[in-house]
Simulated scan of single mutants.
Amino acid sequence: MTDAPAPDPDPALAVDLLTTADVRELLGLTGVRPTKALGQNFVTDPGTVRRIVRVAGVRAGEVVVEVGPGLGSLTLGLLDAGAAVVAVEIDPLLAERLPATVARQAPRCADRLTVVLSDALEITELPSIDGVVPTRLVANLPYNVAVPVLLTMLERFPDVAEVLVMVQAEVADRIAAPPGSKTYGIPSVKAAWYSEATRAGSVGRNVFWPTPNVDSALVRLVRRDPPAGEATREATFAVVDAAFAQRRKTLRAALAGWAGSPVRAEAILRAAGVDPTLRGERLTVTQFAAIAAAEPGVAR
């Protein structure tokens, strides 16, 4: 007696990830021409999509928010992993087309997609799917607004506990940079207020259409509590902005405008336990918060 042959896979269960030919076809159907203004570069390599989903740790049953889904390359990969997706898209043509693309490429997944037509910098609420709110952000972020979008999402949606985004390699380096490094700056400190950031790999230029003239990289952020103490996020970020506006100067000089004078800046820094002769790139987010907390207690 021989084993019966395995049944052919049900085509209705298959997820066909987008290839270069698919991307070009969809661009023709939508009438969209990729623009630098919106930072549109579409992923055309299924292997890269699967890698991003794997590195992100996407699990079946969770709800993922994706910013800038474009034609749906990464969206399909997230759905294939069993997640539900809230896709935030600013381009009305792309937002309108995305459900049809998912219905064609992944019929079994169509009911797990919710499209939100909105600028990610203006969105204030994310819908839940079957009562479950998004807890993970996975996205190929538009390069021209990657940092503002990332910080906005971290600020407004505290339920988002883990993030994996593809950004320009230089931006990934800045977000994940530690204090004291050449690339440490405003994005590094502000991201550190919300999370621990690490670089999670590089991505070649040839997986995009059109091909960008910059390298790309993945950066992972895992949410953590902000620094302990009395300083608010707004107060701390004001110190960060002032410190890096003149990053070649000592903190005593760089914070003079923020504090009211160099003398008062030095008094605040010493009250916070920070050496006034240091520069901003040497400080941790906790030290910036300590400076912000010390400011109200120092007499003018």
Rank of each mutant, 00 (worst) to 15 (best):
D3W: 15
A4V: 14
P5S: 12
P9G: 01
D10V: 05
V15C: 09
V15L: 05
T19N: 01
D22Y: 08
D22V: 02
R24I: 00
E25V: 13
L27M: 08
L29V: 14
T30I: 14
G31Y: 00
A37N: 14
L38S: 12
G39T: 06
N41S: 08
R50I: 09
R51E: 15
G57Y: 15
G61K: 08
V63Q: 11
G68T: 08
P69F: 09
S73D: 06
L74R: 08
L78C: 06
V88D: 00
E89C: 00
E96N: 11
R97V: 06
A100E: 09
T101A: 00
A103S: 11
S118V: 01
A120M: 02
A120C: 02
L121A: 03
I123W: 00
E125D: 10
L126P: 08
L126T: 05
P127V: 08
I129L: 14
D130C: 07
V132L: 10
V133S: 15
P134T: 03
R136I: 01
V138I: 02
A139F: 13
L141R: 07
P142C: 07
P148D: 04
T152L: 00
M153R: 06
M153S: 00
F157T: 02
A161P: 09
L164M: 02
M166A: 00
Q168C: 09
Q168A: 11
A169S: 14
V171E: 10
V171W: 15
V171P: 02
I175D: 03
P178W: 05
S181K: 04
S181L: 06
S181C: 09
S195W: 12
A197E: 01
T198N: 13
R199T: 13
A200S: 12
S202H: 14
G204L: 00
G204H: 03
P210H: 09
P212A: 01
A217C: 04
A217M: 06
L218W: 01
V219K: 02
V219Y: 01
R223H: 10
P226F: 03
P227E: 10
E230H: 13
A231Y: 01
A231M: 04
A231W: 02
T232Y: 06
R233P: 02
A235H: 12
A235E: 15
T236C: 08
A245N: 08
L251F: 07
W258C: 06
G260P: 09
G260F: 03
G260D: 12
I268P: 05
A272S: 04
A272H: 08
A272Q: 04
G273S: 03
G273H: 03
P276C: 04
T277C: 11
L278W: 15
E281N: 08
A289T: 09
P296L: 13
P296S: 07
